[in-house]
Simulated scan of single mutants.
Amino acid sequence: MTAAPRLRVLAAMSGGVDSAVAAARAAEAGHDVTGVHLALSANPQSFRTGARGCCTIEDSRDARRAADIIGIPFYVWDLAERFRADVVDDFIAEYRAGRTPNPCLRCNEKIKFAALLDKALALGFDAVCTGHYARVVLRPDGRRELHRASDHAKDQSYVLGVLDERQLAHSLFPLGDTVTTKEEIRAEAERRGLAVARKPDSHDICFIADGDTRGFLARHLGSEPGDILDQDGTRIGSHDGAHGFTVGQRKGLRIGRPAPDGRPRYVLDISPVENTVTVGPAEALDITALTAVRPRWCGAPPAGPGSYTAQLRAHGEEHPATAEAAGDALHVRFERPVRGVAPGQAVVLYDGSRVVGSATIAATHRPVPADR
């Protein structure tokens, strides 16, 4: 059997346990590994500190200590300006337009596998290594495919669905091929002497320091009072800014009086032009189809309509669907209605475990009422 080639690998080290173990595995596999931590804020103290975040001064120190234990060179690269423009400003603009973006997916697309990868290749590296749970599969014809992690419970291929074939050719995901629990990853980190072994996972949005997304948006978009409407257009409440809501939201509506049927209501639609938020019962969230834009394919685009499964959230279930690409649009129709899908989210198509591609949801289509 031919030995795998020795690569020059740039390991993106966030300061967490997954990226540290991924870097250690890459080095153990015989690759020439260099660690790098991305400084994504001009003021790192404005990002989360302690157990809840990433991208902090504390995280850069944790990453450096891990690199020292692994025995690899380590650097900190300042990508704060690029991150602000491509991720933070995009996040604010999407909410201003009444959409619900996924900043982690955008960070992978614009930062880790664009800005970082391009810089790595320019410096002579062969690949970028991260702690994502996903797999790159080499086909007999030499092309590469992105697949779900061997352990579907930890799979993160949804947020990597924006990667094209060129980027996949220069990506390593050392954690994706093994079926291990997070406790086993932590135990491996302990065996390797990595101090991050018991560090809690980061969660939520790294650039919102206090976890208050509505407050963050209010600070950047201001307060603009408007109406909360029922499905028939009746005003049933008010809000301080439509950007503080997302389709499918139930809590924090501040409607006051209950609905006539006594059931809870959910956000059905957000109109930034009229500055209104429309609410209704859960079943009104059902959609049967969607239109998405700016598709990115993990390989060749599909030829004609096909049957796939579609995932609509990072940890959501798969929905059987048919899909067809038409220029810069992707049309998806579901076998059964799905609920609570918001424009701005990503739809990722799968063929079995293979990631076909990703697109940004632009519009959703609800079932036609039976009495029409």
Rank of each mutant, 00 (worst) to 15 (best):
A3K: 15
R8I: 05
G16C: 04
S19T: 07
A20Q: 05
A24D: 01
A24N: 05
A29Y: 00
G35A: 15
Q45Y: 06
R48Q: 09
A51E: 11
T56E: 04
E58S: 02
E58D: 14
D62C: 14
D62F: 13
D62G: 10
A63S: 10
I69Q: 14
V76N: 13
V76H: 08
A80L: 03
A80C: 05
V88Y: 01
D90I: 02
C107M: 02
E109V: 00
I111R: 00
A114H: 13
L116S: 02
A122N: 10
C129F: 06
C129I: 09
L138T: 12
P140C: 10
R143W: 14
H147D: 13
H152D: 12
A153D: 05
A153Q: 06
L163H: 07
E165F: 10
L168N: 06
L168C: 03
F173W: 14
P174W: 12
L175I: 05
T180C: 08
K182I: 12
E183S: 14
E184C: 13
I185W: 03
A187N: 11
G193Q: 07
G193L: 04
C206P: 09
F207A: 06
A209C: 08
R219H: 11
R219W: 11
D230I: 04
Q231D: 09
S238G: 15
H243G: 03
G244C: 08
F245Q: 01
G248P: 09
Q249S: 01
R250A: 10
R250P: 00
R254P: 02
G262H: 10
R263A: 07
Y266A: 01
V267R: 00
I270Q: 03
S271E: 15
P272W: 03
E274P: 00
V279H: 04
V279N: 02
W297E: 01
P301V: 01
G306R: 10
S307L: 05
S307C: 05
S307V: 12
Y308R: 11
G316K: 03
A321E: 10
A321G: 11
E324C: 11
G327N: 05
G327W: 14
V332K: 11
F334H: 12
E335V: 15
V338D: 12
V341W: 07
V341Q: 13
L349F: 04
V355D: 00
V355K: 07
T360H: 09
H365W: 14
A370L: 11
R372Q: 06
